[in-house]
Amino acid sequence: MVCAVEAVPYEKIKAQFKKGERVSIVTCNTCTRSQEAGGAKLMEEISQKLVQDVGIEVVEEIVLTIGCNFDYYDYAKPASDVDKILCLGCWAGWSVIKRKFPKIPVVAGVRTLGVPAMNEMLKVVTPEGVES
């Protein structure tokens, strides 16, 4: 289950938002939470900071049990009338949001380092449009 991830530094996330933008934030509650790159608590912290520091409007915050399962998004019924989506999930979760909302920019707040194989890290190819 666990892919290896790390959080994108807050300053890099912050730089991708502008004052007044309507934003929804989605986090995965599995791999990213267990590696402190996502999860409800971190999402709350980042959300509050972006509101204070940038002046975005957070339309909704969504915690998904697994971010790489389309069916969870369908149940969550995420808003489609937002300017941007901040994804605190791995790149597979990011791909799911991109596919569901192809016209909305999706900011990747998490870097995917790879797939573990015992003591090795099998590297993945970086999708275009994410912070590598």
């Binding site: 892919c3 790489c68 399962n69 389309f70 069916d71 791995c90 790149w91 597979a92 979760g93 791909s95 799911v96 596919r99 995917t112 790879g114 797939v115 099998l122 590297k123 993945v124 190819v125 999708p127």
Partner: peptide
């Protein structure tokens, strides 16, 4: 690699290993 799953489409590879 990493995949995304749905009941309808099953598992699909979205982020392959290098």
């Amino acid at each position: 690699g990493l995949g995304a799953y749905s009941k309808k489409g099953g598992m699909r590879l979205v982020v392959p290993l290098e």
